[in-house]
């Protein structure tokens, strides 16, 4: 299953998903989407559309059709596994509460 906005070949310009790094040291975060004829113009359009107020220092664009998402119908099961594995979190280890630098 591709990105929810992908329109296949119906539109003259395909849809691109835009990811912006707001400052150095942070990850690129999804900002939205736009239309562009190719990747070169997609980056430029993203610059004009999503960084008009200095919101970013780096841009990724990805064709919406190239994104694979997890199966929405299996949502519950797919993300169920971490439940019950509380031992992955530091808060599980209560006996060491109060010990310095731990």
């Amino acid at each position: 299953m591709t990105s929810p906005g992908d329109s296949g070949a119906r539109e003259t310009w395909p849809l691109w998903e835009v990811f912006i790094r707001s400052s150095r040291g942070l990850s690129h975060v999804h900002a939205g989407s736009l239309h562009a004829p190719d990747e070169t113009m997609a980056v430029r359009n993203a610059r004009d559309l999503y960084t008009r107020r200095s919101e970013g220092v780096s841009i990724w664009v990805v064709p919406a059709s190239a994104i694979t998402t997890s199966d929405p119908d299996a949502k519950g099961e797919f993300f169920e596994s971490p439940q019950g594995k509380e031992y992955r979190h530091a808060t599980y280890y209560t006996k060491s509460d109060g010990v310095p630098h731990l």
């Binding site: 929810p4 329109s7 119906r10 539109e11 849809l15």
Partner: peptide, 12 residues
């Protein structure tokens, strides 16, 4: 963009 995630494209 937001509307397009509901399955309608911009040209439409």
């Amino acid at each position: 963009s937001a509307a397009q995630t509901l399955g309608i494209d911009r040209e439409t």
